[in-house]
Amino acid sequence: MAGLARRTLARRLESVADFSDPNADLEQYLTPAELAAHLCHLAGLQDDLERRVIDLGTGTGMLAIAASLAGAGRVAGIDVDPAALALARRNEGEVLSERGRGRAIEWLRGDVTRHPFSTTDATVLSNPPFGAQRGNRHADREFLETAREIASVSYTIHNEGSQEFVESFAADAGGDVTHAFRAEFPIAKRFEFHTEAQATLEAEVFRIEWE
């Protein structure tokens, strides 16, 4: 099923609600609508939305909802936090309501590292923790390890300076980074340790084809 044009997709995604009480330990931040639209538009151009799409660590549901709007027919989002899943479901109801309910997203509670998926041919979308909080170091590696297990292709968002690590990980796992681009990741002040009203992180996005 054809999806929305990129600009229209970004505008629709601007109505995705942010966390009202984000969990700092889980690094819960809203994936920017423009970035989600760019990522899913690229996935559509690569025919990657024809497969089952799985959003690892879905949070607000931004990437799962973007994939559905972009034309994906089978979409699932998984998160360890039940409050995040409740928010994702509400966002689905608000954002997808205008386009009908024929392509409902499957929301699953679970740890990405102990996932319930048996597929090996999915398209994974993910904005994993950047590792800024204690206990989250190398969290993005765990998400890549799961992507390698269940996906034939994945799109992941990482902190600036991750390209060498991602390319090395992919190569060691028999994968190939086919696309890499930079993206701005604005973050509003949400936690006590934030010192500015808003900061903009430089992020890096990678498309990996897995064997």
Rank of each mutant, 00 (worst) to 15 (best):
E204P: 07
D176P: 00
F185W: 04
A173V: 00
E184A: 15
D47C: 03
R11M: 14
P22T: 07
E50K: 09
L96M: 14
R7S: 15
V16G: 04
A203F: 01
L26T: 05
A37P: 01
E50H: 05
R51Y: 02
R207M: 05
R99A: 07
G71T: 04
E167D: 14
F143V: 13
Q133S: 13
A171R: 15
V112T: 13
R12M: 13
H138A: 14
L30I: 02
T156M: 13
I187V: 14
Y155K: 09
R109Y: 02
R148C: 01
A37N: 08
P186L: 05
V153I: 06
F181D: 07
T113W: 04
L42Y: 01
E149C: 07
D55E: 10
N91A: 07
F181L: 15
A88L: 09
I65P: 10
F193Y: 15
F165H: 11
D79F: 10
G3M: 06
A188I: 11
T195D: 15
S154V: 05
E142M: 12
E160H: 10
A84Q: 00
F191Q: 13
L108N: 03
V112L: 13
A173C: 11
A88K: 07
T178P: 02
E164F: 09
A76P: 00
T195I: 12
R99T: 08
T123A: 06
D25T: 11
P82N: 10
G135L: 12
A104I: 05
R207W: 02
R103H: 14
K189I: 05
T123D: 00
A83G: 07
F191L: 12
A33W: 08
A173H: 13
S168Q: 12
L125H: 09
Q133C: 09
A132G: 05
F143C: 07
S20N: 11
R148P: 00
V177F: 08
F191C: 13
K189W: 12
R52M: 04
F206T: 01
E50V: 03
A83T: 11
E196P: 06
H158R: 10
A199Y: 03
D21G: 10
F165S: 01
E202F: 03
E34A: 15
D121T: 11
T195C: 08
F169D: 06
P116L: 11
T146M: 04
N159E: 08
A122L: 03
D140L: 07
E184Q: 15
P129V: 06
G93I: 03
D79P: 09
R182I: 08
A151G: 01
R137C: 01
R182Q: 14
T58D: 06
E211N: 13
A86Q: 12
E149S: 11
P186E: 05
Q163Y: 06
T113D: 10
I54K: 03
F185N: 05
V177W: 02
E167I: 05
R141L: 14
A24F: 08
G44K: 02
L85S: 06
E211F: 01
G77V: 07
F117I: 07
T8Q: 14
A183E: 08
